[in-house]
Design a binder for these strands. Sequence first.
DNA 1: CGCTAGCTTGACACAGGTCAAAGGCTGTGG
DNA 2: CCACAGCCTTTGACCTGTGTCAAGCTAGCG
Lengths: 244, 244
Amino acid sequence: MTAVVFKRLNALKPLSPGQAQRIEALGERLEAAAPGAMLQGEGDGLIRPTFILSGWACRQRLLPDGRRQIFGILIPGDAVGFCSDPSPISSASTVALTKVTLATVEPLSGVSSPSASTANGGPDPWGFADHMRLSGCLEEGLLLDHIVRLGRQTAYERTAHLLLELHWRLALIGRADERTFTMPLTQEVLADFLGLSIVHVNRTLQQLRRDRLIEISGSHVVLLDMAQLTVISDYQPPILAPES
Amino acid sequence: MTAVVFKRLNALKPLSPGQAQRIEALGERLEAAAPGAMLQGEGDGLIRPTFILSGWACRQRLLPDGRRQIFGILIPGDAVGFCSDPSPISSASTVALTKVTLATVEPLSGVSSPSASTANGGPDPWGFADHMRLSGCLEEGLLLDHIVRLGRQTAYERTAHLLLELHWRLALIGRADERTFTMPLTQEVLADFLGLSIVHVNRTLQQLRRDRLIEISGSHVVLLDMAQLTVISDYQPPILAPES
DNA sequence: CGCTAGCTTGACACAGGTCAAAGGCTGTGG
DNA sequence: CCACAGCCTTTGACCTGTGTCAAGCTAGCG
């Protein structure tokens, strides 16, 4: 079950054997959450890296009148709360969309004394500093993509773009086939993510179906023509390794 | 001229006298850029923290068909390129909107040898690790706000929200009055930031004027009723200090 | 003093929202 | 094993926020 975390982090930067071992140890202390459960509230700063081992979640914010905007979809292997820092600064909460299993990294033994060097998020008490930093960069890239979708793309383009993004991320953790994957999201969630109404999400999916670009039944998605989808949505997968 | 950088970083976390001195030293080596100049290209990873001492810029991405989405507006005191990392991952470029003056932090002397500990962005060769991290968090918060604007707010709400955000950020660096500030942005830039057409930005500004919420002439902005604007746009200023 | 970049306005078109209702599914309890 | 309840999807009719096109207007600047 920890394999998804290994695959994701290892893709960002190869893990040392010691690190791999520590990730495997994640499987020993699991926490479960039901759909709808809040994994991280308004401004809780997460002290330690926490990973989703199974299930899907999202980061979101609610407006006073009930409108909801989803910032990002979290899939197995993803870190909850960006690992960023103890300071809230901005309000967003992380909510489970399905049943979710979580695991938290334990601090490295031997650096427990809060000396000047380890205080305040200092030199890496968990041994994953580089990976968490790269993970943060990847997530920032996803946020930028999302901003382009919302600001300058049509419903049709947005939807295609999202499907390609999910496919890419699921493939990274070995949860997607060449052109198919499982997406346990309701059209309401898609709507709140894509900045559309439920009805219009439905109509857009119908259109993509009619155009023979995708097939969707239940949570099963088939991308019939990835090349075409890529052109339509101007999708560009993240570049993980500096091509040296 | 380095005062804006001092004010911004000091607001994130008090600067030590040594750090303050190093910031003042920024004024010794300036670079200038003309409006439209690219300050940071597609995937140039910035090696060192670089600050805008004067002028405005933006981070943006262009779509193949010419559509433009602006991710964020950069004002004096802001860091260019998020200091994040040497890995591109996602494509965005930083462009000067007005004449801009830049300055780059020099590495601390004495840590120049690329040992294992300093390699790869290791323990803070510039002496501003905490501040850059907090700055990154602040910027992430701004990105989240932007996503809500684009995804779930009307043109009217978006525009009000942006004006309040700019006012808050300018006040932080001492460049805004109680209710007025200078905003050297064309309506085209506002449009590409807010995900609207130029024409509609214009109409929305007219509406805000007619409703006696703002006054705008040229680059001079007056917020006539900040309370009302705040309610309309659900604006919540970032929380800088953990309220202990 | 003409040019150009930016602002303003009107008429019209269309993407996407809203409202409403009808079908599926699926799980649960009688 | 059926029936009901609830959630999700689908569809149609209609409305509105925002985009597009086109034309003036203004003001700074060479």
